[in-house]
């Protein structure tokens, strides 16, 4: 994906690089496909010959390539929704140079053959770096562990039954324990399926008024708290996907304070919609 022949100057932009504490007017000098220097001024003074492409980023932000650790490329099996090619093109359009794709493909990415297929396809057709997330359980059925070790060797970077929780607490314990051999994170879709059963939106006066079945916040909070307890028991690394409840955030904050290996991400699409209630796949919570 790196163009070794690329010489480029990006100037007059607003450069942000948290790793170096840069957040202000700046310019980049790229030589042979690699960032050679970051300037903390507009960069109009950079000397360069005609082999350099120049981009004026006036009024724009210049960011490091972003990483999206939760995408669905849908291939194999659901190419009518998305392919590795279209998904990675969309990622690059949005500034993402690396994506981690969830395993809910058809067949499910629960063995090294599927992992190898995705990575080979991504290498050939992808517009950005693709990392695979393997399923925790075979067929995402929540019944038996998938071959996490073999998938790790094939290239999986984390494991998740995304879209579904591992409802069986014993199996979740085993997954967190077993994942330690390979030093990989277990990503949890935290939802108690019995509590949320049939629900399509946040449970409250609005759901009643709309005549829709609601989901209580506890469906997520209880699942998050269970997973945190299991992470503490096993010492496994836990990541909670798409947290949407205040109770969940409180539980994660407390767990981090206690030194438990847990990280989390918000539901990004709902961040601009705070305090409103919409019906989406992951219902807004309070």
């Amino acid at each position: 994906m790196m163009r070794k022949d690329l010489n480029l100057i990006i100037r007059n932009g607003h450069v942000i690089d948290p790793s170096q504490g840069i957040d202000g007017k700046g310019a980049l000098l790229v030589e042979g496909g690699k960032i050679k220097e970051v300037f903390q001024d507009s960069g109009f003074g950079i000397q360069a010959d005609s082999t350099y492409e120049i981009i004026d980023a006036g009024g724009l932000y210049v960011l490091p390539g972003l990483v999206d650790m939760h995408v669905h490329l849908r291939e194999p099996g659901y190419e009518y929704k998305e392919t590795i090619k279209t998904g990675t093109m969309a990622a690059v359009r949005g500034g993402f140079t690396s994506v981690c794709c969830m395993p809910n493909t058809k067949p499910v990415n629960d063995n090294e053959t599927v992992t190898e297929f995705i990575l080979r396809k991504a290498y050939a057709e992808g517009a950005c770096y693709v990392y695979t997330i393997g399923a925790i359980t075979k067929g995402q059925k929540g019944e038996e562990l998938a071959e996490m070790g073999m998938m790790r060797e094939a290239g999986c970077v984390a494991f998740s039954d995304d879209g579904l929780p591992v409802m069986n607490s014993l199996l979740m314990r085993r997954a967190l324990e077993y994942s330690k051999v390979f030093g990989v994170t277990i990503i949890s879709h935290a939802e108690d399926l019995n509590l949320s059963s049939g629900g399509v939106m946040n449970e409250g006066p609005l759901s009643l008024r709309l005549g829709l079945r609601g989901i209580p916040v506890e469906a997520e909070v209880i699942a998050i708290k269970r997973d945190i307890e299991l992470a503490a028991l096993t010492g496994g690394r836990l990541h909670i996907a798409h947290v949407s409840t205040a109770g969940g955030v409180r539980a994660i904050r407390e767990a981090k304070r206690d030194g438990i290996e847990v990280t989390a991400e918000p539901v990004r699409i709902t961040l601009p919609l705070q305090r409103k209630q919409y019906v989406i796949t992951i219902p807004m919570q309070r």
């Binding site: 038996e144 998938a146 071959e147 996490m148 085993r174 077993y178």
Partner: peptide, 10 residues
């Protein structure tokens, strides 16, 4: 009580 490892292959 199975499930201590994924498969005998692994």
């Amino acid at each position: 009580d199975r499930g201590f490892f994924p498969t005998t292959d692994e």
